[in-house]
Every structure is written in C-alpha cells, then in structure tokens.
Design a binder for these strands. Structure first.
Length: 853
RNA sequence: GCGGACGUGGCGGAACGGUAGACGCUGGGGACUUAAAAUCCUCUUCCCUCGAAAAGGGAGUGCGGGUUCAAAUCCCGCCGUCCGCACCA
C-alpha cells in the first residue's frame, strides 16, 4: 500500500480537527463512569496573538491530556481567558479603543490560533473572566468571604505619580520614576480591601507537605514566602533621654507610645542590642513627626520611591534619632536610643526591632553608618568574647558570650532561656511571626471585576445585596485623563444605600486580576447559571490532576488559588483541600537577539546572512548577534507561531516544542530545529505509507518496540517529553533498518499510537493509511510485556582502579566469581595489572567489575 | 537586600553513585540524480603516538577542596548566568 508522497499538513490538520470536533472527542462528561483526569494549563491573558510560550505550555498539557485519554480516563482539558488587566487600558489610552472591544477581538484571534494547533480542548467550557457571567459569581463568592469575616478594610501604600495624579503599578515605576511622566514616585496611603490570607498561613504552609507532585523548588519558595518563624515578642518601656528632656515631641511620643513592642527571632542576642528602630509608619514615628519638622522631613524622604520590596530593601540604611530611649528589659539602667529607620517594615512583626549589629547584617550597616556600638554576644569555637567583629555581621551559630546569665549557652538554649524569663517576668511572650501579609485586592482601575460594595456616609461600607449582582462594569467610559475612569463616572458611581436608602456611592476600585484566576479552575469543572459552581460536580473533577504553567507564578497565583480553595472549604462551599494535585512549571522560549550598529534591536525576520556569512539587516547593514534571551517585544526577538504553523503544520511545531530541551528548562527557538521536526514528521509518514502486510517474526525489533512503549509511557508520566521524543527517534530508526515482517508492521502501528499525543494529525493520517480502525485519537495506549524488556546478554564494564579498561559481553546472571574470573581473563586488564595481584575486586552484577590493584 | 534555580562536545541535551556524550541540530565525506531539492549511508569531545588505517595512551561534565573501590551525580567553599519579590500577567 502506498499513500501520497508527502504528508500535507495544510490539508490534514484542518481535516482531522474538523473530525474531532464532529465526533465531540474532547467534550468532558461529568457523569462518565471512567476514572477522571483533569489536565489544566494556566489560561492566557488575551494580549492579541499567541506566542511561542503559549504554544509550548499548551502542547505539553495536550500531550498529557491525549495520553490520559488513550489510557481510558475521562479527561477534562478546558481553556479560557484571563481577560481583565492593565494592557487593555493601555491600549485604550494609546489607541482610543475600548478595553472590552480590544479584549474580545484578541480572544477571537487567539482562539483561532489555538484551534489551528489542534489541541484536545473542551471548548464548550470556555470562559472569559471579563464576562459578567463569570465575574458576577466572583462578586458573590467575595461576599461569602465577607460574611465569613475574611474580608476587611485598611490603609495600604500605593505608588503615586504626583504629576499624572494617578496610582501606578510596580511595573510602571522605573528607577523610582513614573513611566509616563518621569516624575519621582511617592508612596501614598489609600483605604483598601484585604483578604485574610494570613488566617490560613499555617494551613497553607502545612498543606505543602502533602503536595508530593509539586516541584520541591516551588514548595520551598512558598514556604519562604509564608516565612513562619518562631521568636519573642516583647516590649521596651520608653523613657526620655536626659538631654532631650523638655522637647515637645518626646512628650507626644511617650503619650502616644509609652511602650515599644518589638519582635525578634534572635532573643538570644538581647545583650548585644545597641539600638531600637521603628518603621517610618510606626505610631511613635508619626507622633514624633507631628511635633518635629526634621523627623517629618525624614519620614517624607523614606516615602520617596516605589513600594516594591526590591526598591525598599536596596535603599541605603538611613535613620533619624528621635531622642526617645528604650529601657532594656533585663537591666533597667541600660538605655537604648530609639531611631526611625527606613529598613524597618511596618508590615512584618510589630514594625519595630532591636538592633544587634554584631549578628545581623542590616543592623551592622546601620550601626556602622551611625556610629553605634557593635558588641559580640555569640562566639564560634575559634573565637572568644573579645574577638572583634570584622567587616560584616556574623549571623551563625556559636556559644553566647558577654551576656550575663546566658554566657556559655548555645544559641538555641539562650533563646529558650530568654523567652522563659520574659514570660515569667511578664514583659514578653513566645510568638510566631509570618512574612506573609494579607492580600490587598483593591485596584484603582477600570478594566477589572467591580468590587461589590457601596459606601454610605451614615452606614459605612455596605455589601451589595445578592439580588443586585452582578455589579456590571459601565461601558461608557473615557480614558482621556489618567486615573480610574470609574471615579469620574458619576452616573454609575451614584447609588442608594441598601441599608438606609440614603444617597451613597459605589466602590470604584476593581479586583486584582489574581482574584479572577483564583477560582477559574473550579468554574471550568462546573458552570451552572445561577451560582458559581455546583459543589458535587466540582468535586467530581477537582483537584486538578496536572497543572502546567510558567514558574513566574510559583508564588503569587499558586498561593492565592490555594488560599481561595481553603477559604471555600472553611465556609463549606467546596470540600477540596488543595486545588492542584500535580504542578509542573515549564521553562521559557528563548531566541537569539540581534542589534544594529546603532544599538537598536532587530527582529529575526529582518536578519539574514550575506554570501560571506556576515549577518545583515534588510537594508544590508551589518548586524551583531546578541545573547539568547526570553522572547520579548522590547528586544524584538519574538517569533510569531502563526506563519510557522502555516508553513510546517501544527505537528512539526508541536514536535519541536517537545524535543531537545527538558520541559522545565528554557527552549531556544531555531529555524534548524523546526526544520528537523518537520523532517521527522515526513519520515514517520513515509514509514507508515510504505508499510505493507508481511510475514515473519523479528525478535530484536519486537524487543525494541516493547522497550519503547515502556520508555515513552514512563517519560510522558514524568513529563519528560524530550526523552519520549528521543525514544521515538530510536524506534523509527530501528524500524527503517528492519526487513519487512509481521513484527515490523506491528511496530509501525505502535509508533503511530505512541506519537499520537504529540503529533495527533500525523497520527490520524498514518492510522488511516495503514488501515487502522476508527480514529487514532481513540486508540488504547499500547501495553508491553515486562518479560520482553530483559536482554539475555549484558555488557560488563571492566575497570582497573576505577578506570574503564575493557567491556565484555557476558550472559546475564553471572555470579560474582564468574564475573571476576572473566574480567581477569581480559588481555587489557592483564596489561594494566602487569603481573600484580588484585587487592580487591568489586562486582556489580550484570554491570561492572572494578579491580583495585 | 531577600528568596529560588541553573552550569556536560561547535549547539540543545542523555546518563538508578557504576561504560560520560543516548537522541537531535550543525558541519565533513560519500551514494542516488544531467543537475538540484528530497532521501539514504558514514564520520564528528579534545590532545598525543602513527605515512595511513587498525589500535593504543592521556585529559575531560564552571573553578578549588573532600567522601568513595568508583563522582556529572553526594558534601564544603567559590565563580558565573538566569528567575521571583506581594499593583505585570
């Protein structure tokens, strides 16, 4: 039997995609009797066109979804759109389009692109977070959390652009300046809505222990992010420095804050304290600033620059001496100066610390700058109490010195001793502190889910009654001035208080888009019209068995989704502990960068090589090859998948995405790579098209095929697609070399099935040409006979002193003495030994003999 | 600043502590062809011995130590690169 000379993806792809659609292959049946498998990739932001990163991500998920389906699972593999967010507003400002229209046309375009790649998706469950049918339910869930006491309002800092008079996202702050205005950004306080994720800190932390199918690195990152640490919370009594007596701000400060609460994870170093420092937001700092213009000026300086952790923590450590003193709790005569310091965070612990310069690097830098004492209180075995501290702090273990009743104790013993004493004497207690902060969900933006609250001047904030949901985003908005258009939309903003019926105004902030993505996987599983999800249906599918996405979401999105799930469980809405049973974080797609003489970036499609191999641009000017970097618009090193798919077909692109690079690492896009993949697709096609019926057995090929079935299955289970690809190359080569036989014909069928999850259109075309029944997509995943995997003969590696000297073929199952005798009979071994008797011989059965001379 | 990862031929990468470099790409040589494309065969870590081939020897997994009969793999210390840091998604 012979088919067409070439596999033509332009025809085949569309044909089979239509067929799968007609047969409703990928519609998930919630009532199926089969075991379920929920495969999910992180849904995309509809930026306009899909990029190679999407193709890689969705190809991986697709391979797994199709593989599970062939294994007999009822598979849920849905797709949707994370459709709210800033880019739509930016487009509105720059191009005068409406965010809604812009987003919806992007979705339409990207949906077509995804369909062109032949993913096994259940499009009947498609959702977009900007649909009121989605975000209305989200508003209802938020109100459920509000009713459960998990929502509250507090002041929080935002980046404020004083020229544009608008709030900026961290990414809009560049080197401390606004991205459009270029003005120095300030930190400003706004009253905002928060979710009590810290209530779940222990659950979120302890839950990580059961996530066996998550990468260790992600669990570790979440653990560090939650940052639970044990320590001592205690208070310093505030006093007045002699010379400062009579300054008005001291009195104000003391009346405001007669005690200063501090938290420390190192109570053992309490005798090494040389100062106390409070955050610029601390009540004591504010009280001082109210009376002292210099302090106010210092605090204002601290407010300059962005709110991001990297911005704040890389600032130089600076302080302002208040004149207030703190009384050391273990010695009433010992006074510590109290500073306002820019490196103390109000959000962690109690917003105040005691500084131990000898054993904390930040305190060390601060003390050095302000000429404060640096006293050693921990000594390593090679040090004593008088060893001076070098040019950096010593945070490590040791024995306590210079610390009165603690001297001679270990760090740990001293911690316990101090905590015990504090509790006995009543000035402090053991306390856990978390780095995790509550989740601020308010955004001062239009294109997001409206927060369903109403502000009434007499009743305060009042939830929108359920029967008034969804609170719709108004369509009539303008973007001609910076800031949130909802604030200027009086018609929308003005409403009636549900409680007192007085005039009130709507909350004009919208949700952080992470709220939208914190429950979409539940809505995929169950989408009734009248409520967010049906509990029983959602629980049939959840948890997601395999979740796949970028490692950039390792902390925030994944933590928020876990929190949301646990919160729904607490309020009785969903009996699921963890949303994602398995997690995989894939690497990025990268590409070489190119620059012209003038330093401007040049896109790969404008670069070609001239006859001498010199790279030139479209105008013939020389181009310099830069480093390989993540594809990004700014570096112009993106490759648009669409023309590549049009040229090589979906399967070649999919195949290339899976080849070579391990999926967790970066993949470098290359022309040669995609061409190699396209060649392989044709090679498989030729193999199938040229394969006829034949008789006879081929045991070697049979064994190879069986091994490949085992290896490819194992590789896909472990999401090691590059290994699955390599295995298929080997089997295809072996079949090509083999003479016609019944075994060979069978092996071709095996190849088609093994390749089906990765190159599904090719598989259908091949399946048809070799006369397979039904569709390739519906075939059962092939089974293998474990007995067939074992070879009768093994290759023994023979080493002398750990160096390979010979390899010998031996029957399997040789005992130690036989293996040793065989190894010693080797001429090469004898030459190495040169007559010397072996001192020791190590035998690893069926693998290796190492002779130690 | 804090946190996380990664580092193996010309390139992407394989390798339960046990034969380093599977498989792919690139490149060289050859076959088929009037020619090209396509396809197929073959070689391709580096250095040395050798006229050549066969064969042999040495070195080698970022750098420096250590554990072990045996280390790409485990431990300690460096160096380099990348990613995240709460309002990008």
């Amino acid at each position: 039997m012979t088919g067409a000379a070439r596999f033509d993806p332009a025809v085949a792809d569309i044909r089979w995609q239509r067929r799968w659609d007609d047969e409703r292959c990928f519609i998930a049946d919630t009532d199926s009797a089969k075991p379920k498998s929920y495969v999910l990739e992180m849904f995309p932001y509809p930026s306009g066109r899909i990029h190679m990163g999407h193709v890689r991500n969705y190809t991986m998920g697709d391979v797994l979804a199709r593989y599970r389906r062939m294994q007999g699972f009822e598979v849920l593999h849905p797709m949707g759109w994370d459709a709210f967010g800033m880019p739509a507003e930016n487009a509105a400002m720059e191009r005068g389009v409406h965010p809604d229209g812009w987003t919806r046309s992007n979705i339409a375009a990207m949906r077509d692109q995804l369909k062109r790649l032949g993913f096994a998706l259940d499009w009947s469950r498609e959702i977009a977070t900007c649909d009121p049918e989605y975000y209305g339910h989200e508003q209802a869930l938020f109100l459920d959390l509000y009713d459960a006491g998990l929502v509250y309002r507090k002041e929080s800092e935002v980046n404020w652009d004083p020229v544009d008079q608008t709030v900026l996202a961290n990414e809009q702050v560049i080197d401390g300046k606004g991205w459009r205005s270029g003005a120095q950004v300030e930190r400003r306080k706004l009253s905002q809505w928060f979710l009590k994720i810290t209530d779940f800190a222990d659950e979120l932390l302890d839950g990580l222990g059961a996530l066996d199918d998550w990468p260790d690195k992600v669990k570790l990152m979440q653990e560090n992010w939650i940052g639970r640490s044990d320590g001592l919370r205690f208070r310093f009594e505030a006093a007045v420095q002699g010379a400062s007596r009579g300054y008005p701000w001291i009195k104000a400060a003391l009346s405001q804050s007669p005690r200063i609460d501090v938290f420390t994870t190192r109570p053992d170093t309490i005798f090494g304290a040389s100062f106390v420092a409070v955050a610029p937001d601390h009540p004591l700092a504010r009280a001082v600033a109210a009376e002292n213009p210099d302090a106010a000026a210092f605090i204002a300086e601290c407010k300059a620059g962005g709110t991001s952790a990297a911005d704040i923590e890389t600032q130089e450590k600076r302080g302002f001496l208040t004149g207030v003193e703190a009384v050391h709790p273990l010695d009433r005569d010992w006074r510590l100066p109290v500073w306002i310091a820019n490196f103390v965070l109000m959000d962690y612990g109690s917003g105040a610390i005691f500084g131990v310069p000898a054993h904390d690097q930040r305190d060390f830098e601060f003390a050095t700058r302000h000429d404060l004492p640096i006293r050693r209180v921990v000594a390593r075995p090679d040090q004593d109490a008088d060893t001076p501290i070098g040019d950096e702090a010593e945070p490590g273990e040791g024995v306590i010195v210079n610390s009165r009743f603690l001297d001679g104790l270990s760090v740990d013993e001293a911690k316990q001793a101090v905590i015990r004493r504090a509790q006995e004497e009543g000035w402090g207690s053991r306390k856990k502190a978390y780095r995790l902060r509550d989740w601020g969900v308010s955004r001062q933006r239009y294109w997001g889910t409206p927060i369903p609250m109403i502000h009434c001047s007499s009743c305060g904030p009042v939830p929108v009654p359920r029967d008034q949901l969804p609170v719709l985003l108004p369509q009539e908005v303008t973007f001609d001035t910076p800031g949130n258009p909802l604030d200027r939309n009086d018609a929308w903003r003005t409403t009636i208080c549900p409680k007192c019926s007085g005039e009130a105004r709507r909350e004009t902030d919208t949700f952080d888009t992470f709220v939208d993505s914190s429950w979409y996987f539940i809505r995929f599983a169950s989408q009734p019209v009248d409520r967010p999800f049906d509990k029983a249906d959602a629980e049939k599918w959840l948890p997601v068995d395999q979740y796949i996405g970028g490692v950039e979401h390792a902390i925030l999105h994944l933590l928020y989704a876990r929190f949301w799930t646990k919160a729904l469980k607490r309020i009785g809405r969903l009996d699921i502990d963890e949303p994602f049973k398995g997690l995989f974080t894939q690497g990025m797609v990268t590409h070489e960068t190119y620059r012209g003489n003038d330093g401007r970036w040049i896109g790969p499609d404008e670069v070609r090589a001239d006859e001498n191999g010199q790279l030139i641009d479209a105008a013939g000017a020389p181009v310099e090859r830069g480093r390989v970097e993540k594809m990004s618009k700014s570096k112009r090193n993106t490759v648009d998948p669409e023309p590549i798919v049009a040229r090589h077909g979906a399967d070649a692109v999919r195949w290339f995405m899976l080849s070579d690079s391990p999926p967790e690492r970066d993949l470098e896009w290359s022309e040669a790579g995609i061409e190699g993949a396209a060649r392989f697709v044709q090679r498989v096609w030729r193999l199938a098209a040229g394969c006829g019926e034949a008789d006879g057995q081929d045991p070697d090929l049979e064994r190879k095929a069986q091994r490949t079935i085992a290896a490819v299955g194992e590789a896909i289970e472990g999401l090691q697609f590059n290994k699955a690809v390599a295995q298929l190359y080997e089997l295809v080569s072996a079949i090509e070399k083999a003479k016609p036989s019944a075994t060979r014909t069978q092996a071709v069928r095996t190849v088609v099935k093994l390749a089906a999850p990765m190159a599904p259109h090719l598989a259908e075309e091949c399946w048809e040409v070799i006369g397979g029944e039904g569709l390739a997509v519906d075939q059962k995943w092939p089974e293998f006979d474990p007995a067939m995997l074992v070879e009768d003969e093994v290759t023994l590696a023979v080493q002398v002193n750990g160096k390979l000297r010979d390899t010998l073929t031996a029957p399997r199952g040789l005992d130690r003495a036989e293996a040793e005798a065989l190894a010693l009979s080797s001429e090469k071994v004898q030459r190495q030994l040169a007559g010397a008797a072996p001192r020791k011989v190590i035998v690893v059965p069926d693998r290796l003999v190492n002779i130690v001379a």
